[in-house]
Design a protein around this nucleic acid. Structure first.
Lengths: 208, 208, 208, 208
DNA sequence: TATGAATGAGATTTCATTCAT
DNA sequence: AATGAATGAAATCTCATTCAT
């Protein structure tokens, strides 16, 4: 504790801002470290100790910013969710034809970018068996939003036996997984091959 | 039992088998219990205690058959892998047209059956972040085998920009995920809707 | 259980003897295996499983002959104790001079033989931190007997400040340890060097 | 605390040391408790639980400082080894005659002191059948050092059939064991009787 | 704001001994 | 007499979280 207890309250103004800036830096360092460690070892195998060591911080500090390991993870997911939502907002109206294909390809390129940046978190979150209780199922929300967005933008012609929601879900999930295998190098494919294949399948499935 | 030692060899055969039978039963009970618990709580949350309680066995017995929780899981995966391989062996030659669609649908029905039975293990195994070391990557082997099998059976016409391997992987992964969402009730769809949608997309993608 | 319960009682006479012979062989095998395993790993690290495997027997059989691991060990110790007592009985009257030296040397040679044969058990028993309660202290009894025997046979001239009991104990313990280091090859010394050194020291100490 | 980050380095030094001081105290408490428990029950019977209870600490803390029970023990042994080496360094030149006897007696008194303080560890370590692998054989090193030291300080006149190394080993081992029996009250002897006997035997053996 | 020491519930694992055949 | 499967008490160890400074 400080020798002079009066020293704390007056430390307003600039001092305060300085401290806050430091706080933000610390928090950011912890988030980055968390993302890296989760990506490398998965949620359960990741140790709080790994995270704080990588962030050059301490256990005490960790719990100053996050109430639990899961909480830090949730914040990472929330960030990515926002990104996904922003990406959904840019979904073009996709229709049959070359123009539709080009639009789709551009958008999928953006998705691949996002996956390259944040795939680690997405992957972890898919895999992490967090919270059996449904309150924590942010992942499904994002997935639902994505499917919903696509439903309005990609007008699939009615065909017998084809439920559009299911079809869209199938295609979305395919995109996610393919990016997953590409990012983790489990499949050797260039970005172009990836996009071509996806566009081709989606196009055929939706309008074929 | 018999005073005459010559009586033993013939008897020991059966006796042996009887004892072994008990062992096998116990082992099977533990495997079943493991599968159930993993399905319900995921690999990490599953406690050995849960498993032995459900199997009406004991910790000691558990470690008589499996050197660790991970080992039991690996054996479950190995069993499922065999099932998958058996299923792959039944892959029909799939070609364009109504007959091809029917064959595909029948096969996918079998896959859905398998997924209903063993999806819990498949899911857990996909998610379980086990084994950082490559020795334990049985999952990828099965996936690779499946993709390989399909490549020979589903003759996709050459089209520009479409790598058949990547395309098949995309479709396989889509099947797996869709079954996943169906089995876990994250998407409400009947078996028929599921199969129709998958057949439709695969058919369009491959021959559209 | 036997199909015909009447089969057991009539199996008297020769049969009975045959069985007993077998039993003795089994018991002996277990004792031998126990001695070997204790020698190799020490009492605590020795597993009942190691013993029965080496004896090509089984856990069940083990507890047919010995009520516990400690019990088997105690029987080994008892055997060695008997040997030691027999050896003590052969202690010659040792007096100053060449004849005394020769007698001492011969006796110590016998002791070294015994140690070579049963040192493993002696060692284990010295080291094994068995039974905190004094009832199990067979080792001290044997030691006490040895010291007592020597006191009557080796007539140490009264000297100032030299308690004969303590002196004998010191010399006995020295013999045991030196054999120990020799048997475990922690000191490289021939049997002759060993005996010469011991005789020399004892002679000097007792009559110097 | 201080807003000014330049204020930290100088402060952290002391702060650090304060924190480290707590750590050292805890570690020392655990070591002391370990020594006491090992002395009372022996290595194998000693429970980590006994140790932490006696140290008024916790399991978690224990494993913060020692990776295992064996590790704590090894550290105790290392400490005692150092003490022994320090004692060896004080070995006087011992020669025939009253002056030599006096020097020897004083030194043996120091050895008995050390044995009274740390005999529990020495005993346990002699008995503990730790580490089958040679890396952990610290005990033999210390013994070897002691024998080596004595070889240079106690000039034993050449005599037929007496290997000085073996003789010294015999005497050293005798000292250790006699202190052992004295400390554990298996032999009733005052410190004076003990020392007198040892000096007498060593003197006779070396120069008799 | 930051630290690192401390905690303890709870997890995995071992192994002498008993049981059923 | 012999077997080996089964047991479970008890041991070691982990790690997210809290505490004291």
């Amino acid at each position: 504790m400080p020798a002079d207890p009066t020293a704390r309250p007056p430390a307003s103004g600039t001092d305060d801002r300085v401290l806050r800036a430091r706080g933000h830096r610390t928090r950011a360092r912890l988030l980055d470290a968390g993302a890296a460690v989760f990506a490398a070892k998965g949620f359960h195998a990741a140790r709080v100790d790994d995270i704080v060591r990588r962030a050059e911080s301490s256990h005490g500090t960790f719990y100053l910013y996050f109430s639990s390991k899961e909480e830090l993870f949730r914040q990472l997911v929330a960030d990515v969710s926002e990104e996904i939502e922003a990406l959904i907002a840019t979904l073009p109206q996709v229709s049959k034809g070359e123009k539709g294909r080009a639009a789709m390809r551009t958008w999928l390129d953006g998705f691949a970018d996002l996956y390259e940046r944040s795939g680690a978190v997405i992957r972890t979150w898919t895999e992490s068996e967090l919270s059996t209780d449904p309150s924590g199922r942010q992942g499904d929300d994002a997935l639902g939003a994505l499917v919903g967005g696509l439903l309005t933008q990609v007008r699939i012609p009615k065909r017998t036996g084809l439920d559009p929601t299911v079809a869209i879900l199938a295609l979305v999930t395919m995109c996610e997984r393919l990016n997953y295998y590409a990012t983790t190098n489990q499949v050797k494919a260039s970005r172009d091959e990836l996009l071509d294949t996806l566009v081709d399948i989606i196009d055929a499935a939706a309008f074929g």
